[in-house]
């Protein structure tokens, strides 16, 4: 069984990039979300095995990336969330870790960095 991944990013470019990486490997992108609210909704619906979450997204109804992580973890404490962030956002990454994010990647990242991380999270 391919692991199901939900890709959350406000930038289409990033979503396509991540989808492209995953497409060429043994993972399946089961859904995409472009903001925090949609992310929480899709998580409920799709029950993915893992979420990649852009940490900086436009706030919608007071909900940002961190808020989305918080809500998802509250729904499913076992949720596996990878934070996608950029240099200079260390405090946000720490906050995400605090909320229960499992790992993080820093943009720009190469395809094999993401794959390596996923393989570490799903050893089999």
């Amino acid at each position: 069984m391919k692991k199901k991944i939900l890709v959350v990013d406000d930038a289409i470019f990033m979503r396509n990039y991540i989808r492209g990486i995953l497409h060429n490997s043994n993972f399946e992108v089961c859904g995409e979300a472009s903001d925090a609210i949609e992310a929480v909704e899709k998580y409920k619906q799709l029950k993915p095995d893992l979420v990649t979450m852009d940490i900086i997204m436009p706030r919608i109804d007071e909900l940002d990336g961190i808020g989305a992580i918080k809500k998802i973890i509250a729904m499913d404490p076992q949720a596996k969330i990878i934070v996608i962030s950029a240099i200079g956002e260390e405090h946000l990454v720490n906050e995400a870790t605090n909320q229960g994010a499992k790992a993080f990647l820093i943009k720009p990242f190469k395809p094999d960095e993401l794959i390596k991380l996923l393989k570490q999270i799903f050893p089999d």
């Binding site: 962030s85 240099i87 990454v93 720490n94 870790t97 993080f104 820093i106």
Partner: peptide, 13 residues
């Protein structure tokens, strides 16, 4: 390592 602090904090958590 680019984000040493965040990386280390992940370990601690």
């Amino acid at each position: 390592c680019l984000m040493k602090g965040a990386r280390a904090f992940l370990v601690i958590v």
